[in-house]
């Protein structure tokens, strides 16, 4: 680089680049989303090859590399397996909006699941310091549902009686 650069103004070009997308849901994820929307039911897909539950249901179970073959209703209650308390205000890549912090994302093993198949979602509590591994939570459904993961608003911490 020439020495002139030390004095030169460096122009940067600011561009917002986006391309509208239409994501297919397919028959598997699609069925899961329809059940959320129409019936407020959380449906897991079980693979008989290894007994694994898929949540959310996907085309193929990565471990047995087979398709799931049995739909089973699970939840809405569950147990928190792991969680992250997020203090860093990252933008929602779908909307560009920045969330209020702190918020909690959790991996919830729903009642009725055999084995481990945690569903990833927001966890809310009046006092987030009470959110712990092993805590009981329950799915709270949105009033207006449109066939997306946001049809579950979040999982709500169930406060244990002291």
């Amino acid at each position: 680089m020439s020495e002139a650069n030390t004095e030169q103004e460096l122009i940067v070009s600011r561009q917002i680049l986006s391309i509208n997308q239409t994501f297919s849901t397919g028959p598997v994820m699609g069925r899961f989303l329809i059940e959320l929307r129409d019936n407020k039911r959380i449906m897991a897909l079980r693979c008989s090859a290894n007994g694994r539950y898929l949540l959310p249901p996907r085309e193929v179970d990565a471990m047995s590399v087979t398709e799931g073959d049995e739909w089973i209703e699970v939840g809405p209650g569950g147990t928190l397996r792991e969680y992250d308390v997020v203090y860093y205000a990252s933008p929602d890549p779908l909307t560009g909006e920045t969330r209020d912090v702190p918020y909690v994302i959790g991996w919830v093993n729903l009642d009725g699941v055999e084995g481990i198949a945690p569903l990833w979602h927001l966890v809310e509590a009046d006092d987030i310091s009470k959110i712990k591994t092993g805590a009981r939570v329950e799915a709270i459904f949105a009033e207006k549902r449109s066939g997306t993961m946001e049809d579950i608003k979040h999982f709500k911490l169930i406060e244990e009686e002291a």
Binding site: F23, S24, G26, P27, M29, R58, E59, V60
Partner: peptide, 8 residues
């Protein structure tokens, strides 16, 4: 092929 996700 809107009937399937790319995974499908």
């Amino acid at each position: 092929k809107w009937q399937q996700r790319m995974q499908g």
